[in-house]
Amino acid sequence: MHAPGSQPKKRLLRLRLNGRWREDAVAERELLVDYLREVAHLTGVKSGCDGGECGACTVLIDGEAVPSCITLAVRCEGRHIETIESLATQGRLSRLQRAFHEKLGTQCGFCTPGMIMAAAALLRHNATPTESEIRVALSGNLCRCTGYVKIIESVQAAVEKPHDC
């Protein structure tokens, strides 16, 4: 046990976050989700469970969608982390964001950032996924509102607009 209020030992973490390099002093036990939310203030990253079970915290690490709540932040040294905050650029929603908005792929919105990031990783690897590929890719992201129907439709709608960013 550390003394109350004292800071645990920290280490300098250098990584690329949403395209920009940055450095922070980070405790070695810090989870990536906490680093992103509490240090980098990227509160679009959500936390929905006690570890690894819901996908709400999904971010991209070097382009792969992973749960940030079971990843130690310091293991991301030198990596590129992308969160939902990076998707809308130059005042435009990304095609996935637009589709989720227009097709009601979001209801309460709590699963949405993780869901969109998981879908973004899918589309980077596979520009024209089938419905079942979409279902598999999103199968670690739980949604309690939509029954996934409009989520799948949103991803399909985004697939049909490959030229939007």
Partner: peptide
């Protein structure tokens, strides 16, 4: 195993 996000790591 698990879900795609777990399989990546």
């Amino acid at each position: 195993i698990a879900a795609p996000g777990h399989r990546v790591i």
